[in-house]
Simulated scan of single mutants.
Amino acid sequence: MKKSTYTTVIQQIIRYVLFLHFLIPSTHAQQLKENWVKRYVNSIINDTTHAEQATLTIYPTFATSPETGIELGASIMKLFYAEGDTLNRLSELQAFTFFTFKGQYGLVLENAIYGDQDKWFFLGETKIQQFPLLYYGIGPNTPKHHPASVNSFNILFRQRVLRKISRNLFLGPEVDYQLISGVRFDQPSEGDPYPIPAGGEGTSNLGMGMALVYDDRHNVLNVRKGRFGEVAYLRNFDGFASDYNFGTLNVEFRSFHPIGKRDVLAWQIKGNFLQGEVPFNQLAQLGGDRLMRGYYLGRFRDKHAIAAQVEYRILPFAFSKRLGASVFAAAGAVAPHFNAFEARNIKGTAGVGLRYLLFPKKDIYIRFDIGFTKEGANFYIFNGEAF
């Protein structure tokens, strides 16, 4: 057979193989892809892994809040027990990236890692964001109309490295680094312009200190029983990796009480107290999707803030395996000095929510909350409880 004939035969064979590979099995390949997606979704929703096995879950996310509008993204979550021992606490590592139709985007990393027999506890978060927000000014009685818009690039890194000193009690250093750059204040078209606050042209600050933490929760993702408390003091020194000289005292306490087989009563008290010249982005704030739901994030900000909330969760309803609900209320205030808190400046919020059990084995819910205030209502969709 001539060489050209061999070449022709080989070419025909290659064409035939390609035809079989790309054309004939195309429907089958699509079916395989669809089946794989179905199997993956089923593996998430109906987790069949053993309790002691580490799990890595990747899933798309959808959220909405008054700060972001519609938010699309993806989340990677790893859950594991130290040494594969379920007598240890469940540790969580989560990476979340998002973008919104308001031009916001970012990456959020969260960790709550418990060592074997709780000898070590690593608790922290990292945020890298391009995140325009509304700015209402500083103080307890800022007007709700005509806010400025602040567009900036932000980095927040907060990490605690804690050592167990007795049962459920941890002590260790804490680091807090915050950067805001490329700041652009867009003044409102109506009303008086806002004075540019400290840090309004960009700033970076490194705070270092100590944290004392009490924690007897076994599962931080959806706490049904337990308590968490923290007292931390951080200091920023002008000229030592910081542009401003100020101190921060953070105090927080959370408590969770099971009611019957499904319900949970949860409450939280939180205080932030700062001294010195503080950049506006690190002032104590009220509002957002976690505490004082219904108010815009940073609707009120000042050097001191105290807030508390209570929530009753039905997880899930008695007639459903996946649907649940909640009712919540909160109150808080900001002030320029600790002795300047006044009852007339206390702001209140209340709301209701629906819950959908997304991952039964991991007891993780999607929450749909609506918070009501004197200034109106805001709607939130997020994975996991507010606190």
Rank of each mutant, 00 (worst) to 15 (best):
K321P: 02
E311S: 07
A330L: 03
G298I: 08
S326W: 00
A307R: 08
L354I: 10
I366Y: 14
I306Q: 06
K303E: 06
R293Y: 08
S326Y: 00
D363F: 01
K347W: 02
G353V: 09
Y312N: 04
E342Y: 02
G351K: 04
F317V: 01
A318Q: 12
H304R: 07
A308G: 15
R355M: 05
R301I: 11
E311M: 05
L354F: 14
I364A: 11
D289S: 12
A333N: 14
E342N: 13
G351A: 10
P360E: 13
E342F: 00
R301Y: 03
A335Y: 06
H337D: 14
D289Q: 09
M292F: 08
A325N: 03
D302C: 11
F317I: 04
I306V: 15
V352T: 15
T349K: 04
R293I: 03
T349L: 03
R344N: 11
M292N: 09
A307S: 15
A333M: 14
N339A: 02
R313W: 10
A307E: 13
E342C: 01
F317Y: 06
F328V: 01
L297T: 11
T349E: 08
Y295N: 09
N339H: 11
N345S: 09
F317E: 07
R313N: 10
D289L: 03
R290F: 11
L315Y: 00
G348E: 04
V327Q: 02
A318I: 06
G353K: 06
D302V: 05
R313V: 11
A340K: 11
V310H: 00
A330P: 05
L291E: 14
A305Y: 01
G324C: 09
D363C: 01
G324N: 09
A318T: 12
P360I: 00
A329Q: 02
K321G: 13
L297E: 10
Y312A: 08
F368C: 13
K361L: 04
H304W: 10
D363H: 12
G353S: 07
I306C: 05
T349R: 03
G294V: 11
A308K: 01
I306H: 01
S320N: 09
R322M: 02
G351F: 07
F319D: 08
